[in-house]
Each structure stands twice: as C-alpha cells, then as structure tokens.
Design a protein around this nucleic acid. Structure first.
Lengths: 147, 147
DNA sequence: CCTTGAGTTGAAGTGAACTTTAACTTGCAG
DNA sequence: CTGCAAGTTAAAGTTCACTTCAACTCAAGG
C-alpha cells in the first residue's frame, strides 16, 4: 500500500497542487502526513478528485460536492456500493441539466425561425407575458409549465 | 416609441437594476438619457438582455457574449435576420454542451455498475491509463477519442 | 555535507459577475 | 411647493474557486 505524493496526485488527476491543498482545506479530500509533515495520499483519494471534477462539469458548487462527499464513510475506504450510490445521485442531476439544456435548445430552434428573442412575446422567454405571476425572467426554461 | 426606465427593465427581464448598470458599463447593453440623466431603454434592449441570460445558461462568459453582441449593428435596431444569425451560432454551442453532458451521463451510467470512478481504470476518466500522452485529467469526457 | 528540487504554511492576489453603500439628484402625486 | 420614491455615481465589498507569493523545511543524489 504505497502512498502518493502531492505531485503524483497532481500528475495523475490533472489538478494543480495548489488546488489539491485548497480541496483539503475545504474538507473535500484528506491526506496523512509523513514524519516530515509532507502530504501522502491514499490511492482512493484519486476517486474523490475525479468525482469532484466531474461534479464541477455538471455545474455543482464545491459546497454541494463537499456535502455529497460527506455521505461517504470516513472510517473506511469507500466501497463500490458507496460510490455507486453517489454516482446515481449525480446522474440524476446530470439528467436534469441535460433536460434543461435540451429544452433551451428546442426553444431556441423555434426562435431562430422568427428571429425574435423578445422578453415579451417569444415563447423562449416569457410567452404571452402572462407569466409575471410565476416570477420574473425566462420562465419557460427555468420553470416550464407542466403538460 | 416609448422608452423604458431601469425599473421597467428590471421588472420585465428579471435582472437586477445593478446588473443592468453593470452590463451597460461592460458594453453589453446601451441606453439613452433623459434631460435629468436618467437611463431610458429602447424596447429591443430587452432582447439583448434575454440573449445575455440565455447565453449565460449555456455557460458562456460575459466577455464572449459581449463580443458576440458586437456583431449586431450599432446604428440600427437589429433585424430578425441579425438575431437569427446570432441565435444559430449559440445553438451550436448549446448542441456541443449537450453532447458533452450526454457523454458524461453515458459514461457515468457505465460506472455505476462497477461503482468505480478511478482515475486509472475507469473509462469515465482515463481508460487504460494510457491517455497520459493525450494530457491530464478526464480525457474521455473532455477530449474523447474519435471513432 | 551541500545543493537542489519538492514540499509546507498563511496571507494576499485574481478574475468573473455582480451587489452594496453613501451621498446626491430627479420626477411626479398631492 | 413639498415630500418621497426612483434614479445617479464611484468606489468598495462579496462569493467562488483557485493561484501566487514569501519564507521556510525536507529529501535525496553526488
């Protein structure tokens, strides 16, 4: 069971050393120390880092990521099942985001025909201008009507 | 041709007044002034704002948005065609982002089966660990191999 | 030993996208 | 007219996600 140095981790994960230290300070990853106070990482920390970067791609904040990772066991190396549970959760987030983007794309496609993009008339943004009651902004995308 | 005040604009667009002033300072939108130095907006500025918010949803920076908007005519109200051209361009960006997200989702689905998320073995991140030559990080998602 | 590269810390800096503040001025209903 | 809500500015503050800096200490080859 060989431990990895911070430069190993940076090389393998593609994340800068400074970011790794930052993540540790934020409680996203952990490390042990050598007698000389240098960080040593267990191999499975790479999974945490991978997870962090993926979640960021999905548009999740570090704070949310932190709280998700907090669900992993602290006293033992996470099992496949632990990770699978977490992955499933993020997969739903991803799914939601994709759906939103697709809705955005579809509406935008319709808008290209009319060359509009008006806040008042275009369905992309606020159809019929009667949505004021539902709040401000591009209601159709952020908060579409149920069918 | 009635002009809108800043609070009209804020109400109609769902964007804070402070943000509208900020956008103006950044050259994203424009306004005329009353004799008493108050901002008055032409109605079509709402379209610019809508466009800005939509582009932000897609993950585009204000700087990029600014340069895209710079392609619109300054001396006349943009025509449908002007907007359509711009919309088409963003639609491609959206399409790309959706593709990336779908790839991410598909890979993640595969990963749930194995409960992995390893930087070394999981195909989500860096299959076979031989991608080092192609750069660091989650290569499969950011820069997938051609088929 | 000595040098050099790798690692450590706290604190300050960065950039994006705004918001808040303070001190005024305008617009308009009564 | 008056009073007050709405508007104006420059400058400073905020949050997020890091990076950079300065001043060290540690580890290992020659």
């Amino acid at each position: 069971m060989e431990l990895l140095t911070i430069s190993d981790m940076a090389a393998r994960s593609g994340v800068a050393q400074s970011a790794l230290r930052f993540y540790e300070k934020e409680g996203l990853i952990t490390s042990t120390r050598t007698s000389g106070n240098q960080r040593r990482y267990e191999r499975h920390e790479l999974r945490r880092i991978a997870f962090i970067r993926i979640a960021q791609q999905v548009g999740v904040s570090l704070e949310e990521i932190r709280s998700a990772l907090a669900a992993l066991p602290e006293n033992r190396t996470p099992t496949k099942t632990d990770w699978a549970r977490l992955s499933a959760r993020w997969q739903r987030k991803l799914e939601e985001r994709i759906t939103m983007m697709e809705r955005l794309r579809d509406q935008l496609t319709g808008c290209i025909g009319c060359g509009c993009l008006s806040l008042q008339r275009c369905s992309l943004i606020n159809p019929h201008d009667e949505l004021a009651s539902r709040g401000e902004g591009p209601q159709m995308i952020l908060n579409p009507p149920r069918e």
